[in-house]
């Protein structure tokens, strides 16, 4: 797992504060309640593909570190709600992941480029797969 922010000094500034507030508003979650127990990360089935653990994402959001938007983690999250089931502070981390995805999707960004999905694939995959991935990954 790479350390996206290793060795960087994180400054808590007004800008950082604004970023945290936006994530809180979009996700509806009390992000400050997180006390870094790591429960979400140990429950998450997708960590082998992530560059930041879910708990680390939570910490960076608390600190208002916008670089978290560059992380692969929200795009690897499969919205399985395992993390939420394990959080002792009652945070639904899946909602935080959605907020981070939405922040990018709402700025003319598409994670899934439909043109790259081949005809052969499209012939096979059920509507439910296409609909859900387009909902999650395109704006």
């Amino acid at each position: 797992m790479s350390t996206l922010l290793a060795g960087r000094v994180i400054r808590i500034s007004e800008r950082n504060g604004r970023f945290s507030e936006r994530v809180k508003a979009l996700s509806g979650e009390e992000i400050d309640l997180c006390f870094q127990c790591g429960g979400c990360s140990s429950a998450c089935p997708m960590t082998s593909q992530m560059d930041l653990l879910p708990s680390k994402v939570m910490r960076l959001v608390q600190l208002g570190e916008e670089a978290v938007l560059k992380s692969r983690t929200p795009w690897i999250c499969s919205t399985c709600f395992n993390c939420a089931a394990r959080c002792p502070r009652g945070i639904d981390i899946a909602n935080v992941m959605e907020a981070l995805r939405q922040m990018l999707l709402r700025s003319k960004f598409d994670h899934l480029k439909l043109e790259t999905v081949g005809r052969e694939e499209l012939r096979e995959i059920p509507p439910i797969a296409l609909i859900s991935s387009l909902r999650k990954f395109t704006s």
Partner: peptide, 15 residues
């Protein structure tokens, strides 16, 4: 006329 043929040519309708 398979069930997926419209999605195959116009997958964006899934949006």
């Amino acid at each position: 006329p398979t069930p997926n043929v419209l999605l195959e040519y116009y997958p964006e309708i899934a949006r």
